[in-house]
């Protein structure tokens, strides 16, 4: 009887393990893979019949096989522009948010300016910045920074104001300084908002970097420049290979943010899996 029930238990555990295995693999990975595969097949079929509209999948893959260093090098340039620009932009936005949330007058003074900056199309600013700052990295950093500034500022403001008033009361009765409130309460409370913003901002900064490269005509590095040069020569293979690299770059950047979020925000409900 005992051994029997033990056996039942063990087989139940094995079943549970197998079920989890099945759930993890089939339900999680198959639908996106099928969807992705379908798109590749449709793409390939369309490309074979319309060679002057898009290149075939094999031509794109062939690009990476024959000249990997070209794409690798240009990818690093664009990545650097986007990441440095976004980091500066997000840091500046957070600083502004701290100032604005502590000094109401500053919020009233700065918010209209920030909104104007946000509603101005970034594409329109880029050429001017290139003229002002030249063909180096500076205008790219600025454009990538400007494009992330607004979404990160708004999320930071909401995050900094998210602590429960009663927790703030506890800090006040302890006579905590504004710095202690910021460091021990407001910053950790706003982390979920900051990560949500970062997931939007880092891909946005890639857009900024590419737009900046488009505007710097005659520049030779960066995926944006590569696309522009190739497009002017009607070289579809290079154009689409660069687009694929940009897409992969966006995916990896988002992946890094999500991984960091999982690590740092294990306390927050947003990182609990839904089945729990």
């Amino acid at each position: 009887m005992t051994s029997n029930s033990g056996g039942d238990l063990r087989s139940a555990q094995v079943n549970a393990g197998r079920d989890r295995w099945r759930a993890l693999n089939i339900q999680l990975w198959v639908p996106p893979l099928v969807g992705f595969g379908l798109i590749v097949v449709v793409w390939q079929l369309y490309a074979v019949h319309n060679p002057y509209v898009i290149p075939t999948v094999f031509q794109i893959v062939d690009q990476f096989r024959t000249q990997p260093s070209l794409y690798w090098h240009d990818m690093l340039v664009t990545l650097r522009e986007a990441v440095v620009g976004a980091s500066c932009g997000m840091a500046a936005a957070f600083l502004f948010a701290v100032l604005m949330s502590h000094v109401r007058v500053l919020e009233r003074a700065l918010m209209p300016l920030v909104v104007v900056l946000n509603v101005t199309p970034i594409v329109a600013i880029a050429p001017g910045l290139v003229i002002a700052f030249g063909f180096g990295f500076t205008p790219k950093y600025i454009i990538a920074g400007v494009i992330v500034f607004f979404p990160f500022l708004i999320n930071s403001l909401v995050g900094l104001r998210s602590p429960d008033p009663e927790v703030l009361d506890v800090f006040t009765t302890l006579h905590a300084s504004w710095w202690e409130v910021l460091w021990r309460l407001e910053l950790p409370s706003s982390l979920p908002y900051l990560f949500a913003a970062a997931r939007i901002c880092l891909p946005l900064s890639l857009i900024g970097a590419v737009v900046a490269e488009f505007s710097a005509a005659g520049q030779t590095t960066g995926l944006g420049s590569l696309i522009e040069t190739a497009a002017s020569q009607a070289n579809l293979k290079i154009v689409y290979a660069s687009v694929v690299v940009l897409a992969l770059l966006g995916v990896s950047v988002t992946f890094v943010v999500v991984m960091l979020q999982r690590r740092l925000l294990s306390w927050h409900s947003s990182s609990w899996t839904r089945s729990q």
């Binding site: 429960d164 006040t172 925000l265 306390w267 927050h268």
Partner: peptide, 20 residues
Amino acid sequence: AAESKHIGFVPQTPALLPWR
């Protein structure tokens, strides 16, 4: 009294820091 931490305050909700 607050400055020298003489006041202990227990609010209506536990008001704990969820990340700690």
